[in-house]
Design a protein around this nucleic acid. Structure first.
Lengths: 350, 350
DNA sequence: CAAATGATCCAAAACGTTTTGGATACACTC
DNA sequence: GAGTGTATCCAAAACGTTTTGGATCATTTG
């Protein structure tokens, strides 16, 4: 049987109340008794029963986080970085993380209801905004503190606190980079429709083209599944539709690596014949051959900021909604080069 | 104010007891009343207060996991894979994960005491065995169910349930692979001393040499910090001590990639002049140039098995200690080739 | 017909904390 | 010496469940 307050009380000769208040550091207990009580408590190995405390004070000192189940494929690196940032910051402030892996759907919503409605967490971090996000609606309605990574999809109200990267500007910067090198036919591989950020990426692409006075051609845009195979397929489609494309931007690195593979299998050389850029800057981007030009996001820091801003809400330091944009970095590597000459010697034919 | 049992009781016209038992599915409540109560509960949006339940039944339906704080450097990929396996399996059985990021030390032990002694978790997963592991001692003494990834260091008692990879055999297989290619001077870059598995790796190396009738030379073994820079440094030292080394085995991929970089900076060619192998099979190993020969471990599956075995303990399906070894795979890629000819032309020529 | 059985329900205790609202004793003020 | 403060302590209530140990009534059994 575990030691409880009652045992410490009996052993020390004081009441349960006094023991509780002594250990909690209240000023209405004599310094000497406090020392004695602490002494007794630690000699008995007293550990407070936390569910009991949580029931009483309605606080748990833990933060809820639902991560996508069974997709260790494309977002691994992303989530591990984010989780480390979240975990480190939470631990530093004395909070635990309550994590559940759920695929989008009814079970996922039930999980939020359990954590929030069941009083298991003091706040929630929500990671991938969707269009018409039911989770956000629920959390707002429950009035529990929460922070979101990723703003709402364009056209939807965004009355919650979030951190985001200006991915529209990031994609625009990639396009600028390419047009600056002389590219005029640039393909784009987008993420799936349902992701809230997809429209922003497309908009950035269009802005970039406009900046350079280039026309927007929907035939040069294709959607991929964020996996390497999706990039491979996407690149094939793009090059099939228009063999004169000289650059491809994929909306994540994995698809970019797939695109590189497709390009090589067409006997073209990445970086010389066709420039490629990705998004995310996963470690493999640096080790790839040729190394991959991409957009670096400070994922770890985002995780940390999510926590600090969430704790500001929980601990009542800030009530206003915060909309934080963190900077990205354009990382230029070997996969992006000037375009092959129009009409010059072509690989297979042309 | 949240809806509680009392509200459902009042609204449905039954007692708190009956409502509780109806929702819990006991057979001593009329099927019709049960339906009515469930109806009322869901129309009121009843969510049970879980800390209260936990306090009462002394179960939380969550598993504890302490991950290393602030080392998003070398074990990222490893931990994210493992976490996905653990998270998926736990969620599938209706368990949450309680996670805290702690650096080894007193705060880490306090974290275990809080989780276990504080009744926050029903079981614990412990990830990186150390020598004389205080955490394992504590968990055994507390008699809480726990599963460990990694057996005890050689010479220490191993009276707990664990899953491990036979890394001794894995390293031996790498050495066999190299000696089979004709290599006779093979360097080794070990993990730091304090890791429990380090001696097993060294033993595998020695066994491999013995298999091939080669002498063991301590000068060909060096310790690295598991980072890329450690591999770079290690390779330099090895090649400095004996320039005739034709193969290097690093005990993780990151160090192997560092070694490759060191080799290239000496104007030697990886895979032709010097063979390199790693351990872990992180994604970058495949994308590296040349791609890296390495040992693949089924990390995701390990995570899953850790959970299923832990739940067997928690739910009383199995009391005996289990010692599970899962298979590794030798993945041969471009970084390992036959040795350059003894006495033949040296790096810069031939 | 009394007793036993079975179906359905419930009051109250218990889980281990924290907090409320004093109680007590002593010192100081006027 | 009455009143006011202050320091120190505590009994009991409360948090929202689950479970124990019956109670009640209708039905069946001997």
């Amino acid at each position: 049987m575990a030691i409880k307050l009652k045992d410490v009380a009996r052993q020390s000769g004081y009441s349960i109340t006094t023991v509780s208040r002594a250990l909690a550091g209240y000023s209405d207990v004599n310094e000497q008794t406090r020392r004695h009580i602490i002494e007794v408590a630690s000699s008995l190995g007293y550990q407070p029963n936390l569910p009991a405390r949580q029931l009483r004070i309605r606080r748990t000192n833990s933060l809820g986080l639902v991560i996508p189940a069974r997709d260790h494929s494309y977002s691994n690196e992303f989530f591990s970085q984010l989780l480390m940032g979240i975990g480190d910051a939470a631990a530093q402030s004395g909070y635990d993380l309550l994590i559940s892996a759920q695929a989008p759907g009814e079970a996922e919503m039930a999980c939020y209801r359990r954590m929030v409605g069941g009083n298991l967490v003091d706040g929630v971090i929500l990671v991938r905004t969707r269009r018409h996000d039911e989770r956000i609606a629920y959390l707002s309605q429950q009035q529990i503190p929460f922070m979101v990574f990723g703003r709402a999809a364009p056209g939807e109200p965004c009355n919650f606190s979030f951190i985001d990267i200006d991915s529209q500007a990031a994609i625009r910067a990639l396009v600028d980079h390419f047009t600056g090198l002389g590219h005029r036919r640039i393909g784009l591989i987008l993420p799936p429709e349902e992701m809230a950020f997809t429209p922003y990426r497309l908009a950035g692409y269009q802005e970039g083209l406009e900046n350079a006075g280039l026309p927007y051609d929907p035939a040069r845009v294709v959607t991929g599944d964020l996996l390497r195979s999706g990039g491979e397929q996407g690149a094939r489609i793009l090059l099939d539709r228009d063999p004169k494309i000289t650059a491809i931007i994929a909306c994540n690195d994995l698809m970019a690596l797939g695109a590189m593979r497709a390009i090589e299998s067409l006997n073209l050389q990445v970086g010389r014949d066709i420039a490629v850029a990705g998004y995310d800057d996963i470690p493999a981007a640096e080790y790839a051959y040729p190394s991959l030009t991409t957009i670096h996001q400070p994922i770890y820091e985002i995780g940390q900021r999510l926590v600090t801003l969430l704790l500001d809400q929980i601990e009542g330091r800030n009530s206003a909604h915060s909309a934080v944009f963190l900077p990205y970095t354009l990382v230029v590597r070997a996969s992006s080069g000037a375009p092959r000459q129009e009409g010059g010697a072509q690989p297979e034919s042309s």
